[in-house]
């Protein structure tokens, strides 16, 4: 799980062009949107692409997205629960 979280942080920084941010500066429980990392609606859409492209997970319902993309931790949990390794 920790490894996945670290990996996700790196991917998020790269795919959302979060310049100057290091993985260590993102708390896994910190909200990604609004008061947290300050991501916006286009970032959310790009996270949907990331989930599909890297983890083969298609998120169709926007309402589900809110829970999944709450934090890096919730994203990792969703990936763990939905990918068979």
């Amino acid at each position: 799980m920790d490894e996945l979280i670290h990996q996700l942080k790196i991917e998020i920084i790269s795919c959302l062009n979060l310049e100057g941010l290091s993985p260590e500066e993102i708390d896994a429980t910190q909200p990604l949107f609004n008061e947290g990392l300050g991501l916006d609606s286009i970032d959310a859409l790009e996270l949907i692409v990331l989930m599909d492209k890297t983890y083969g997970l298609k998120i169709v319902e926007a309402s589900k997205g809110k829970e999944i993309f709450y934090s890096v931790g919730t994203m990792a949990k969703y990936i763990m629960e939905n990918t068979k390794s």
Partner: peptide
């Protein structure tokens, strides 16, 4: 095939 919304905009 992964259309990028952040490029499309």
């Amino acid at each position: 095939y992964f259309p990028s919304p952040s490029l499309f905009v």
